[in-house]
Nucleic acid binder design. Structure first.
Length: 582
DNA sequence: ACCTTAGGCGCG
DNA sequence: AAAGCGCGCCTAAGGT
């Protein structure tokens, strides 16, 4: 059963209609005031457990969440369209001609704000074809029509089961992302402020540098004999370094570390603290942390490979330096789970390289560290060497230690290396490559193709460089993108199992107090970083959630790859504080 | 008064 | 220890 949700004919309303799986209406279209949408959706959810179909999850779900409503499943038409428009699996289905152009992204629908009055936002990811730009939000008929077109595209594609799984995982991911944003990461503002005070000094008034940062700038100016130096200006800085006899080509930290000079230490210290101050300092705290929660915004499918991106506050770039401020509420813990060596394992699965798969198991068949296994098979037991080699193969290294180690890997695992090599060659020719479930690279631009046909020697070199660069991109795309699909399925399976858990008993083992009004605590996913998920979990449910995290990993692997002699083990840390994970 | 690009660095 | 993939955020600097 589907439940279609779209904007109503007049402002401040929505329209809901049930449809059977064949698309036939199962109820009349009902117009509901936005103020009453939460209860209305809850009623339909309880009665039918439908798949909610809407233009974008990011547009509709925040309103439902703030009304206390969570739905089981959805179909996000915008995200699915974005996949189908590019997917090589659906290239000959005619979907591209039938797809309805999407309206530009808008702010989420809110109670009290007319949808028609919303400001149009950026729409770079979901650009409608220029010839037929849509402006108005989709009505019910458009939602129904687009759903039909997408279902037809999947069924007539070259891999219907894989594409169907990809679209449902992407849609489930969209629900997870909005729920994570809504919950936020537990954040101890007091601890964060203490950290800033210890490292930087008191919060500066006006736009001054904090005390300790200014002191380091002073030391740096003295050491370089440059009294007017602005350490934030790379140009200014490189000139001062050259005058002091430091012949660095850039001012990057890793390069400066090679030089012995009294200016280097204060400069590196300044860099580190300056980053903390500008990116994760008092301003960040005031902008992104409210009521003890860090609320950022996830952008599902925001990366070409299908990975999520984030917007505002940097939810996926929280530096180790401040993770000590992410602390579970009293009576709770953070369960931090990450998939071990996800991308190399994905490569072994994609290429069906049984030799590489065997490197991730011991003689009894238990999962072991894949890098260590590879090191034992061919790098004299040196794990870091094996890791550099394997990442080099996935990224396309040609120089340095990494590039030198790749040939050894190619002798050990010809199937795996051949798989990424084929992806690279296809990319160099300007072809499209696809993940296992069918997300494909965007087509090359006309400029790229024109460049490949260039004549002069200089243009030729540029064209070859561009081809190699695209080859590295497509080589990495198949692995990174399939890893993102695995992670998305993992999240979806985890979400389903968390929802199915019985709530924590209010009393510790005793009979529930019938008159109790206490809110029953449930575990919530609060962060996701490509191959790592964080659950804020009541103490009484740690064992359940830990078990579920592992089960979900196995379920995701089977969903995507079926039965296979390779697992995707998950490392789980149960901690008070994010800094203690791993 | 904005907008874009480059340099640098945080994360996976 | 090295510089190969994907991002977001901040500042400086140069453009319109």
């Amino acid at each position: 059963m589907y439940a279609l949700l779209a904007e109503g004919p007049e402002g401040s309303t929505a329209v809901v209609q049930l449809r059977h799986d064949d698309g036939k209406p199962a109820s009349d279209a009902r117009t509901v005031a936005l103020a009453a949408l939460g209860p209305a959706v809850q009623k339909v959810e309880d009665a039918h457990h439908p798949r909610w179909v809407w233009e974008r999850t990011a547009k509709w779900y925040p309103l439902l969440l703030s009304a206390g409503v969570r739905v089981e499943k959805c179909h996000d038409l915008a995200l699915c369209q974005n996949i189908l428009l590019h997917s090589a699996f659906a290239a000959s289905t005619g979907y591209n001609q039938r797809a309805t152009p999407l309206p530009p992204e808008t702010d989420p629908v809110r109670h009290g704000l007319s949808p028609a009055g919303q400001q149009a936002g950026q729409d770079s990811l979901f650009d409608a074809p220029a010839a037929n730009p849509a402006t108005a939000a989709w009505d019910l008929a458009t939602v129904a029509g687009e759903l039909g077109a997408q279902k037809t595209a999947v069924h007539s594609s070259t891999h219907p089961a894989r594409l169907a799984l990809l679209l449902s995982a992407e849609s489930a991911g969209a629900l997870v992302a909005e729920e994570m944003q809504y919950e936020g990461i537990p954040w101890r503002e007091d601890l964060h402020r203490r950290l800033l005070n210890d490292l930087l000094g008191p919060k500066p008034i006006n736009h001054d540098r904090p005390e300790k940062l200014e002191a380091l700038a002073g030391q740096l100016r003295t050491a370089l004999n440059a009294p007017a130096l602005n350490p934030d200006s790379p140009q200014d800085l490189i000139r001062a370094l050259h005058r002091a006899g430091i012949e660095a080509k850039s001012t990057r930290s890793w390069e400066l570390r090679e030089f012995k000079h009294p200016a280097i230490e204060p400069l590196l210290a300044y860099r580190k603290l300056s980053r903390l101050f500008t990116t994760n300092g008092w301003g960040w705290l005031e902008q992104w942390v409210r009521d003890g929660r860090f609320h950022s915004e996830y952008v599902v499918g925001g990366v070409v490979s299908g990975r999520w991106a984030s917007r505002g506050g940097g939810a996926m770039q929280i530096p180790a330096q401040i993770r000590s401020a992410a602390v579970a509420d009293p009576g709770h813990v953070l369960i931090v789970a990450d998939a071990a060596q996800l991308e190399p394992r994905v490569l072994a699965a994609l290429a069906q390289d049984s030799a590489m798969a065997a490197a991730g198991r011991d003689s009894e068949g238990n999962n072991t560290d894949l890098y260590a296994g590879i090191a034992a098979q061919g790098f004299g037991g040196d794990r870091s060497m094996a890791k550099i080699a394997l990442l080099g193969a996935i990224y396309g290294s040609t120089t340095g230690e990494s590039g030198r180690l790749v040939p050894q890997l190619a002798r050990m695992y010809p199937r795996a290396l051949n798989y990424v090599e084929q992806a690279a060659r296809a990319g160099e020719r300007g072809e499209r490559v696809s993940t296992y479930l069918g997300r494909s690279t965007p087509p090359v631009s006309q400029e790229w193709l024109d460049g490949q046909r260039s004549s002069s020697a200089q243009e030729q070199r540029r064209a070859e460089s561009a081809a190699r660069s695209r080859g590295r991109f497509t080589r990495n795309f198949v692995v990174q993108g399939t890893a993102a699909e695995w992670a998305c399925c993992w999240l979806a399976e985890l979400r389903r199992r968390l929802r199915a858990l019985p709530p924590t008993p209010p009393g510790a083992g005793g009979t529930p107090d019938p008159g109790a009004t206490t809110v029953q605590e449930a575990p919530h996913m609060v962060a996701f970083l490509h191959d790592e998920v964080m659950v804020h979990c009541p103490l009484g449910m740690v064992d359940d959630v830990t078990r579920i995290v592992h089960e979900s990993s196995r379920a995701a692997t089977e969903l995507i790859f079926g039965t296979m002699p390779l697992e995707f083990p998950v490392n789980v840390s149960v901690v008070q504080c994010y800094a203690d994970a791993k």
